[in-house]
Simulated scan of single mutants.
Amino acid sequence: MPESAALRHRKTTQIAIVGLNDPWAERKLKICVRSLKDLPPFARELVDRLMAGV
Results as ranks from 00 to 15, higher is better:
8 R>G: 03
49 R>A: 13
25 A>M: 02
43 A>M: 09
7 L>G: 05
4 S>G: 03
6 A>Y: 00
44 R>P: 04
28 K>N: 11
38 D>P: 02
27 R>C: 05
13 T>S: 12
24 W>C: 02
51 M>E: 15
9 H>W: 06
15 I>Y: 02
5 A>P: 01
37 K>N: 14
48 D>R: 03
33 V>F: 05
28 K>M: 08
32 C>T: 13
4 S>P: 02
3 E>S: 06
24 W>G: 01
46 L>P: 02
31 I>D: 00
36 L>T: 12
2 P>F: 07
43 A>E: 11
36 L>H: 12
9 H>K: 03
24 W>S: 07
3 E>M: 08
32 C>F: 13
17 I>D: 00
41 P>I: 04
1 M>F: 12
41 P>N: 04
53 G>D: 15
29 L>R: 00
33 V>T: 11
20 L>S: 03
53 G>E: 15
19 G>W: 08
33 V>H: 03
37 K>Q: 15
14 Q>W: 09
20 L>I: 04
33 V>N: 02
25 A>L: 01
52 A>V: 05
4 S>L: 07
45 E>F: 06
11 K>H: 03
35 S>Q: 10
18 V>P: 07
15 I>A: 01
51 M>Q: 15
10 R>L: 13
27 R>M: 05
23 P>T: 03
10 R>S: 12
47 V>R: 00
43 A>L: 11
1 M>E: 10
13 T>C: 09
48 D>S: 07
48 D>W: 03
46 L>F: 12
24 W>Y: 06
36 L>A: 12
45 E>R: 07
46 L>G: 06
5 A>D: 10
25 A>K: 01
45 E>H: 07
29 L>H: 03
49 R>S: 13
33 V>I: 13
22 D>P: 03
18 V>E: 15
10 R>I: 09
12 T>A: 10
53 G>L: 15
44 R>V: 06
9 H>Y: 09
53 G>F: 14
28 K>S: 10
2 P>H: 07
16 A>W: 02
26 E>I: 06
47 V>L: 03
5 A>R: 12
40 P>N: 09
8 R>Q: 10
16 A>C: 01
27 R>G: 04
54 V>G: 13
15 I>D: 02
13 T>Y: 10
17 I>H: 00
14 Q>T: 12
25 A>I: 02
27 R>I: 05
38 D>K: 11
7 L>S: 08
53 G>Q: 15
35 S>D: 15
25 A>P: 00
27 R>P: 03
31 I>K: 00
7 L>W: 07
52 A>S: 14
12 T>H: 10
34 R>P: 07
47 V>W: 00
24 W>A: 09
43 A>C: 09
28 K>Q: 13
43 A>V: 09
41 P>S: 08
41 P>R: 02
26 E>V: 08
1 M>G: 08
29 L>K: 00
49 R>G: 10
19 G>V: 08
28 K>L: 11
17 I>A: 00
15 I>G: 01
46 L>S: 09
42 F>Q: 14
8 R>F: 03
52 A>N: 12
37 K>W: 10
21 N>D: 15
27 R>T: 06
5 A>M: 13
32 C>A: 14
27 R>N: 07
31 I>E: 01
43 A>G: 05
